[in-house]
Design a protein around this nucleic acid. Structure first.
Length: 824
RNA sequence: GCGAAAGUGGCGGAAUUGGCAGACGCGCUGGACUUAGAAUCCAGUGGGAUCACUCCUGUAGGGGUUCGAGUCCCCUCUUUCGCACCA
């Protein structure tokens, strides 16, 4: 017989709802605990990844609730974005309709899973009440000089018909549709995230983030220290500044390399014949796929510009080459080439017959120009470097830089790999950018009291060649807020990552109509105590959210430095070793599992299968195992209900003569301690394993005759802790069993279970006996036996004597309560 | 190439501080119950030698430190992830 999970789960879900136990209290006296898992994109129905993610969050949340915290676990929807728009185009419908349908279904499923969510704080980013404040924040950012507009080459996905941020390009392909990304020149809005590059490298305000994520972000920001060196353009007042991390090699610079996008190159090409080799080369490189161009295998190509630069340290004239291997976006967009000590420059110089000059000698002094097959990039001793000859290259970096600072030819510089965040998207289904272009006044921001700029509901979405909002004529044309003259609205919308960069703060005051949230509530709840989500957002959402948080702090909206104090990056749910996906046909629908086995079973399986940060391999048999465990527990209570009921104030102390019951009492206290410890270190798989083990121990005593009140109470207490320990993982069944025991209040009101250390002390302890590191016997002895006694007993064992074999015992090492090691 | 993480039975995984490797679950084998099956309960289950006692062997591979190593150190291999012409 299967336990009636469907009846039990519905029953408790409605009681929880009725008693509003998940409604978090703003500004409560109690200690707050804010649990958040990344909100879902409303994609139709819940998938296993959601189930896993939110099961982890709910386990934490329930445990904290039980432990007396003022817990907030909100939920919302990242409901703007391209899939809904693409779907709408294909089915000639409106994205709002499919989005709303998805949300309805998913919300129902969240409730069926029994997650303890405070639904009064629900947000949906596609609602004007939400994106209004996104627009408001955009304006504040603009006022602070953190938003600007510029024309630039951008990553363009021709399938999604939109621009992608650098973070959204994966191996040269669109992160959504895997279409190869092209370069396109467009006017775009940018957020000056680079302004915060230095602070984003500082993780001192987070309590517990995986090292991996910190490293990924650090690498992504890519700070590098070096020197800016100013070269004069020969025969001109023009100055070209290069950034280098190797100022020690400046005397070895034999040419300079510029990308075709460099403004100086553009000025040289002006008036030149379109068919000239230089113009043709530049056009070819610019239009080349950026990813292909920057791939390591791509051969280095270039063309001599006909111009020369003057090396400021020795006045040498060096050729300026236009090349495909220098990036305009990094550093100063110009490189001093030192072929002897840089592999790229070396290859290039060899190919085009440019001179190579050694300025760093190996410690063995054996570097010879003719013999070089690759650049020498390691440290060494300076040669051919005038007054710096003989210096160690590492030490010379600072000396050369200081010397250049003194004579005004260079200075220390820091460069980041991080670029500003381009947020314009040529799509309909996103937050409108609150900007108006006036013929007379130029760029004008929409006044605060006219926010939100709402998306027009009626428009043609089928036309995929232009930005959809361009077809909303009535919406576009609007009077200028400044002069009242004719003006047009911005038709790009914001990257949806903007919406998700501050939602964690909106939850603290989700229904506020006067602002994004109030400082008081934000400061009460933030930072999020535990954030949970996938590692794939390490350099996207998690970086953007940190940036937004710091910006919101700087304009006085928030007091804290970081949005997420602790971060858990949970693994994927895989099947047959691969991520579940429609294309692979290995998707398991949570709804089916929910109907067949119930929410508690799915939750227990998810948490038991592996530790939360690792991938979970889906197993139908494993789910049945979790179901079997819950049934086994149910049967225990059903069978023993007469003994178990009416059990207020069970106190069991003192010694008990029955050995098995004594062990059961030990198991009870041991398991409570173990589960509390495991929950603390977020090892839910071992916590559940410990509960299973304890249930096995109870089963071993199940049919024993209980002679007196003490024995009976030991048994009762062993059973009673099970629902308490299991509550974070299988809350419905736990609640049901708890009420069966006769308790009138919901289980969390009784707090987390406690254990008594006195029962963890055993009277007899087991020792393993090793002789020269090999196990040769076991010894059970009184816990308070003296070392001499232990040694005597151990040595007296027959198998021990056999292996000592008459040899002299040199030493006996005793590790209390564990091990006796005999050294011969 | 650089950076990071990992490698343990047939499978998922455990071993928290250097102290009984394989907890717990799945699967499998045997038994009980049953007309039979399902379900359940009990027992067993790394490999090998042995009737048994017990012994040998075993945490990707090789070496080392130690009374004792899955755990610490060195080398090699494999896998996964991130970055990748970043000057």
């Amino acid at each position: 017989m299967e336990y009636p999970f469907d009846i039990i789960e519905k029953k408790w879900q409605s009681i929880w709802q009725e008693k509003k136990i998940f409604q978090a209290v703003d500004l409560s006296e109690k200690t707050k605990y804010y649990v958040l898992s990344m909100f879902p994109y409303p994609s139709g129905t819940l998938h296993m990844g959601h189930v896993s993610n939110y099961s982890i969050a709910d386990a934490i949340s329930r445990f904290k609730l039980m432990d007396g915290y003022n817990v907030m676990q909100p939920m919302g929807y990242d409901s703007f974005g391209m899939p809904a728009e693409n779907y709408a185009i294909r089915h000639r419908t409106h994205p709002r309709l499919s989005t709303d349908d998805s949300i309805k279904v998913m919300k129902k499923q969240f409730k069926m899973m029994g997650f303890g969510i405070d639904w009064t704080r629900e947000v949906s980013t596609c609602h004007p009440e939400y994106y209004r404040w996104g627009q408001w924040l955009f304006k504040r950012m603009y006022e602070k000089g953190l938003v600007y507009r510029k024309s630039s080459y951008v990553n363009w996905c021709n399938s999604c018909k939109t621009v992608l941020a650098n973070e959204q390009v994966e191996e040269g392909r669109c992160w959504r549709c895997e279409e190869p990304v092209r370069q396109k020149e467009l006017e775009q809005w940018f957020f000056r995230i680079t302004e915060y590059a230095e602070e984003l490298l500082d993780f001192s305000s987070v309590i517990n983030w995986p090292e991996r994520v910190k490293i990924m972000q650090t690498n992504w920001i890519g700070k590098s220290k070096g020197t800016n060196i100013h070269f004069h353009l020969s025969g001109s007042d023009e100055i070209i500044t290069v950034f280098t991390t190797r100022p020690d090699t400046i005397f070895g610079c034999t040419f300079m390399a510029l990308p075709p996008e460099h403004p100086l190159v553009a000025s040289w090409l002006k008036g030149q014949d379109d068919n000239s080799p230089i113009v043709r080369f530049c056009n070819k490189v610019i239009n080349e796929d950026k990813i292909k161009r920057t791939a390591e295998e791509t051969t280095k190509e270039g063309i001599f510009s006909g111009h020369f630069a003057i090396n400021p340290v020795n006045g040498e004239k060096v050729q300026i080459w236009i090349t495909n291997y220098v990036l305009m976006e990094y550093g100063t967009g110009a490189v001093m080439a030192v072929p002897a000590h840089d592999q790229r420059d070396f290859e290039f110089a060899r190919k085009y017959g440019i001179p190579i000059k050694i300025v760093i000698q190996t410690p063995a002094q054996n570097l010879k120009l003719e013999a070089m097959t690759s650049a020498y990039t390691d440290p060494g001793i300076l040669v051919n470097s005038e007054q710096f000859n003989g210096m160690k290259s590492e030490e010379s970096k600072a000396s050369i830089t200081h010397w250049m600072e003194d004579n005004g030819t260079g200075e220390e510089a820091i460069t980041y790999r991080l670029r500003d965040w381009g947020i314009s998207r040529q799509r309909y289904w996103g937050t409108p950018i609150p900007v108006i272009y006036c013929q007379r006044c130029g760029v004008v921001l929409v006044p605060d009291d006219e926010l939100p700029v709402k998306l027009p509901e009626q428009l043609e979405l089928g036309n995929t060649t232009t930005n959809p909002l361009l077809s909303a004529a009535e919406w576009i044309n609007t009077p200028c807020p400044n002069c009242g003259g004719p003006a047009r609205r911005e038709t790009d919308t914001m990257d949806t990552f903007v919406d998700s960069s501050w939602y964690f703060a909106r939850y603290t005051d989700a229904q506020n109509e006067k602002g994004p949230f109030t400082r008081k509530k934000a400061d009460y709840w933030l930072p999020v105590d535990q954030y949970i989500g996938g590692i794939e957002h390490a350099c996207m959402h998690l970086l953007y959210a940190r940036f937004f948080h710091k910006f919101m702090r700087d304009i006085g909206l928030i007091g804290s430095n970081e949005p997420f104090a602790r971060l858990l990056t949970q693994g994927m749910v895989t099947k047959d070793g691969a991520k579940m996906s429609k294309s692979k046909g290995n998707v398991v629908d949570p709804q089916y599992i929910l109907d067949r086995f119930g929410a508690d079973t799915v939750r227990v399986f998810m948490l038991f299968a592996s530790p939360p940060e690792k991938d979970i391999e889906w197993s139908d048999e494993g789910v049945k195992g979790a179901f079997r465990f819950l049934n086994r527990l149910w049967r225990l209570f059903a069978e023993k209900i007469d003994i178990l009921q009416g059990t207020e104030n069970v106190v069991v102390s003192g010694s008990v003569s029955d050995e098995e019951l004594d062990k059961l009492r030990y198991s009870t206290h041991f398991t409570v301690k173990k589960v509390l410890d495991d929950i603390e270190r977020m090892q839910y798989n071992t916590a559940i394993a410990a509960i299973m083990e304890h249930l096995n121990n109870i089963y071993a005593c199940k049919n024993k005759k209980l002679h007196d009140v003490t024995e009976k109470n030991i048994f009762i207490q062993s059973c009673r802790v099970v629902p308490q320990l299991l509550y974070p993982f299988a809350p419905h069944l736990s609640e049901e069993l708890w009420s069966l025991l006769g308790y009138k209040q919901l289980i969390h009101n009784y707090g987390i279970p406690t254990y008594s250390p006195e029962f963890l002390e055993k009277e007899l302890v087991n020792y393993v006996i090793q002789i020269m590191g090999r196990i040769r016997g076991k010894l059970e002895i009184a816990a308070d036996a003296s070392p001499a006694e232990i040694e005597r007993e151990a040595l007296s064992l027959a198998n021990v004597q056999k292996h000592i074999n008459g040899k002299k015992v040199k030493k006996v090492i005793i590790i209390p309560k564990k091990l006796i090691s005999i050294v011969l």
